[in-house]
């Protein structure tokens, strides 16, 4: 089953490839399905043209078969996130993939961060600043790899291409509008890029990150990013000395396990996750008492909520 063609370019090659539909309780086994047959994928270009030096977004849309899931960028105790290997015109670069807010699968002895249903991973593509280097038609190629799991896991691979014109055409404009409309609910599942956008703030307080939450926040969940060299403890809700709710996230640093990367305390905070439209934002802090802006963070004394 092919999903509807959706591309931001008038001359786009077919960019959707489909999955078989397996209902709950389906008795098919790994002999009968493949990683490719379980997950449909699309490449959706969120622009109608390529302009020199003007970044644009490209979404890689995955649709999982019922009961099967994919993994967030930090899979947790098992699994692995989908990957996208880009092949772009000369001078183009792709920024890191952005993931939607995951669900937390928490069973005894294993916590994983997963996605089911349909999700969009988004990358910002940055064209070169020199207009002379922008081709009449930019070919974007994405080689996808994913691991999808239910009781078993299967790996899938697929490649997509999209062609984006330098000058907008009627077709590319229509395709862009269609893509925008269709992607809107999927992009709404992404966390905000900063805590400020949800009325929260974060700082380091000794060996814990303290995320001060908007007033009346009842619960908050922390989903850690993949930050080698930082081991997280169990977060707990507290109240600051000024009476604001806060999520205190203890951590332990293990620089020897940082794999050469800068130590970072990072992840997503999800507020009142039980609500139908959870509010979430990403944050990242440098753990040596220096906030992301290079300034020493204001101390945020906290006390245990009783």
């Amino acid at each position: 089953m092919l999903l509807p063609l959706l591309a931001g370019a008038a001359t786009a090659v077919p960019v959707a490839a489909g999955a078989v539909s397996l209902d709950d309780g389906d008795e098919k086994t790994s002999d009968q399905v493949t990683g490719e047959s379980l997950v449909a994928t699309e490449l959706v270009v969120l622009t109608d043209r390529v302009e020199a030096g003007k970044p644009f977004d490209v979404a890689v849309v995955f649709t999982c078969s019922p009961s099967w899931h994919l993994y967030w960028k930090n899979a947790g105790d098992s699994g692995a996130p989908p990957t996208v290997q880009w092949t772009l015109p000369a001078g183009f670069t792709a920024k890191e993939l952005r993931f939607p807010v995951p669900s937390v699968h928490d069973v005894p002895g294993e916590k994983t961060y997963v996605h089911d249903g349909t999700l969009a991973l988004v990358a910002t593509i940055v064209p070169p600043a020199d207009a002379a280097t922008i081709p009449a038609e930019s070919l974007l190629k994405a080689d996808l790899m994913w691991m999808t799991c239910k009781e078993i896991c299967l790996v899938g691979r697929r490649s997509h291409e999209a062609r984006v014109p330098r000058e907008a055409t009627t077709d590319s404009t229509v395709a862009f509008k269609t893509a925008n409309t269709r992607m809107k609910p999927l992009l709404a599942q992404h966390p905000k890029a900063s805590l400020r956008a949800i009325g929260a703030s974060a700082s380091i307080d000794g060996d814990a990150a303290v995320v001060v939450l908007p007033p009346k926040t009842a619960t908050a969940t922390f989903v850690p990013a993949d930050t080698p060299g930082v081991v997280y403890g169990e977060p707990r809700m507290e109240t600051t000395s000024t009476g604001q709710p806060a999520l205190k996230i203890p951590f332990t640093l293990k620089p020897q396990d940082a794999l050469g990367k800068p130590l970072s305390v990072a992840g997503i905070v999800i507020i009142d996750a039980t609500k139908s439209a959870p509010v979430a934002a990403e944050f990242a802090l440098e753990p040596q008492g220096v906030a992301g802006n290079g300034q020493a963070p204001a101390k945020s004394p906290t006390k245990q909520k009783t």
Partner: peptide, 12 residues
């Protein structure tokens, strides 16, 4: 030993 712990990937 460094790293002495990494996040393993794969099936559960």
């Amino acid at each position: 030993v460094s790293p002495e712990q990494t996040r393993a990937y794969g099936c559960s």
